[in-house]
């Protein structure tokens, strides 16, 4: 296996493009190395992106935040401004695995694994995050929800690399939250995840985005659920309608982590709870 440490994103993309065998990006490696150990993958090339300056660090810009693809989750938790602006995204990143795993794993990697149960993906979708995608020829900026295609598959060309995740700047009176259900208190993969991002105007929900994880082949935005709370003060009826929309949007499977019935029910429960937290964070009082 070849191990390369390019210093630009374009070089990383070029390495992927030139490799005839199996090639993978190594960011945190918390999924990749597990699959290699299990013998599920035998890469011919690993492209370690951690020495690419453009993929490191969190920058606050006029447009919002730019989080390099090689930034470990733990750094999101340490970035005060990010935590103040996007607490839901940060709490999602802080739920991945253990502190040890968060010392390595990245939100770009969480996205690119294309696991339907990834914790940060619903939070990023709800936040309206975009991914900066770089290929040997061109770079493009893509809304996060456009990337996962199904379990393990992404709308990315073989030679394309995610360089960074962009989070928008946001108006005052905004809040987001992410909740997931796991059987234990830590260390499990989400059985259901729910993210809510909203902005208030005089206590009324003006805009909202709601996304669910682990209830369909990819994390999904649920516009109907968002519409159910827009224009409301998040009264019980609106919450019930939103929860019902979330449950209706579920297309889950029965597996070792949960049943269909369980996921459908709990998706609504978590969305309701996450909405209340987001509402409170936005300064709303129910």
């Amino acid at each position: 296996m070849r191990y390369e440490t390019p210093e630009t994103t374009r070089d990383a993309a070029a390495l992927l493009a030139a490799e005839k065998g199996e090639a993978y990006i190594l960011a945190g490696g918390t999924d990749l190395l597990v699959r290699m150990k299990a013998g599920l993958l035998e890469p011919d090339l690993l492209v370690d992106i951690k020495q690419v300056p453009a993929m490191n660090g969190i920058q606050q810009t006029a447009a919002g935040f730019r989080i390099g693809a090689a930034v470990p989750a733990v750094e999101l938790g340490e970035h005060r401004a990010l935590g103040r602006t996007w607490p839901g995204v940060v709490e999602a990143a802080k739920l991945i695995g253990s502190d040890q795993v968060q010392g390595r794993c990245t939100i770009a990697g969480n996205l690119c694994n294309a696991s339907p149960a990834a914790d940060t993906v619903p939070a990023l979708m709800a936040a309206g995050a975009k991914a900066v995608v770089v290929g040997p020829e061109r770079r493009r900026t893509v809304p996060v929800e456009k990337l996962p295609r199904g379990p393990g598959t992404m709308a990315l060309a073989k030679s394309e690399v995610v360089e960074a995740i962009l989070l928008p700047q946001r108006p005052a009176k905004s809040g987001d939250a992410y909740l997931r259900f796991i059987p234990r208190t830590e260390m499990d993969i989400a059985v259901v995840g729910a993210a809510v991002n909203l902005t208030l105007e005089r206590g009324v929900v003006k805009t909202a985005r709601i996304a669910l994880g682990a209830v369909a082949p990819t994390a999904v935005l649920v516009p109907r659920a968002a519409r159910a709370i827009i224009g409301t003060r998040l009264d019980d009826a609106a919450l019930e309608k939103m929860a019902a929309a979330c449950s209706a949007a579920c297309n889950p499977i029965d597996d070792k982590r949960g049943t269909i019935a369980y996921r459908v029910k709990v998706a609504g429960v978590l969305a309701r709870r996450a909405a209340c937290i987001a509402y409170e964070r936005a300064g709303g009082k129910r």
Binding site: P183, R184, T185, E186, M187, D188, I189, D255, K256, R257
Partner: peptide
């Protein structure tokens, strides 16, 4: 009592042979 169990598929294969999905209590539990 709460979480640990061997989960076999219809094919008779063990589906959770690891600490990720064979859920022994963690400190915060």
């Amino acid at each position: 009592a709460l979480n640990e169990e061997y989960i076999y598929g219809e094919d008779g294969r063990l589906q959770n042979p690891g600490f990720l999905d064979y859920r022994i209590p963690v400190c915060s539990d």
